[in-house]
């Protein structure tokens, strides 16, 4: 391989850098914006909401017509999400099912961006003068935490709404350790609170990190496969080993794309199901 270490490092780093208003040096800095994440997630949100809204309007306007094409697909998806929600959650809540549909579709579209050729959109952006472009919103921690923290807020909201502030507090402090002696219960409650808080906070964190980790790793594989022909460029096609490299990249990328198609669907599904489960738990009394 003729590629040199600096070139490879530069290429990978290029694919890991967001398009921001200014470089971010610290871990948390709320004056920085990832334009690419915001742009693509809003674009995908509009794609999802717009296409589903058109179907919904058509479906509501002509209730007697036989559904076909995209309408059937949307209805199948809605029906499927509805049954998933009904399997887990038995109360009445107008929010959970639409929330689950939104999460599944939006996260799936996030993840699907990973299947686009890894250099396609960044090169287009480079041609119009943008230095960096990360096209997969779910490889941005802000993207995945944006989802999971919103779910977390809803979890807290419904816990307090259903059980009352005291009920929610009791759930955090009166289990798993419980005793009838009030003087023993006080120190136990502190232990309980620590344990339950960790459990509670672990939920959004694990939601966000699971999705991020899977998609980040998937994208990294595509970047690494792209390295096979990085330095050769078109000149590599003059030699037999260059052709071998190109063929190897094509075959491996295809195989990973197929496998990744499974992963992105499963990740979207897991995020949706866990959200339903967490919100159902928020409605349950202990």
């Amino acid at each position: 391989m003729a590629a040199t270490q600096p070139q490879i490092g530069e290429y990978i780093l290029h694919h890991l850098t967001f398009l921001t208003n200014k470089p971010q040096t610290s871990l948390v800095n709320f004056t920085v914006i990832d334009y690419d994440t915001v742009f693509f997630s809003v674009l995908l949100a509009v794609l999802f909401a717009g296409s589903f809204y058109l179907v919904a309007r058509k479906s509501a306007a002509a209730a007697n017509s036989v559904p076909r094409g995209f309408q059937s697909f949307v209805e199948m998806l809605v029906d499927w999400v509805d049954s998933q929600v009904k399997d887990v959650f038995h109360g009445t809540n107008q929010l959970i099912a639409p929330l689950a549909l939104t999460i599944f579709c939006w996260v799936y579209l996030f993840n699907f961006m990973d299947l686009l050729p890894v250099d396609l959109l960044p090169d287009v952006a480079g041609a119009v003068g943008l230095a960096h472009l990360k096209v997969v919103p779910s490889t941005d921690l802000n993207g995945t935490f944006g989802l999971s923290l919103t779910v977390f807020i809803l979890m807290i909201y419904y816990s307090i709404k259903v059980k009352g502030p005291l009920g929610f507090l009791g759930e955090l402090t009166l289990q798993p350790f419980r005793t009838k002696n009030i003087f023993v219960q006080i120190p136990l409650s502190i232990v309980n609170f620590v344990l339950e808080s960790v459990t509670l906070i672990a939920r959004p964190v694990s939601l966000a990190l699971r999705l991020f980790g899977n998609l980040f790793a998937g994208e990294m594989i595509f970047v690494l496969l792209a390295l096979l022909t990085l330095v050769h460029s078109y000149a590599g096609l003059e030699s037999l080993s260059g052709w071998g490299m190109a063929l190897m990249q094509a075959v491996l990328t295809f195989a990973w794309e197929v496998f990744h198609l499974l992963i992105i669907t499963i990740q979207a599904f897991i995020f949706m199901v866990l959200t339903i489960v967490y919100l159902a738990m928020a409605h349950e009394h202990h």
Partner: peptide
């Protein structure tokens, strides 16, 4: 990194829901 994008994502998500 965590930055303002997080807040924007949450707002977009809320509107989408």
């Amino acid at each position: 990194h965590i930055n303002l994008t997080l807040v924007i994502q949450m707002a977009v998500f809320a509107v989408l829901i």
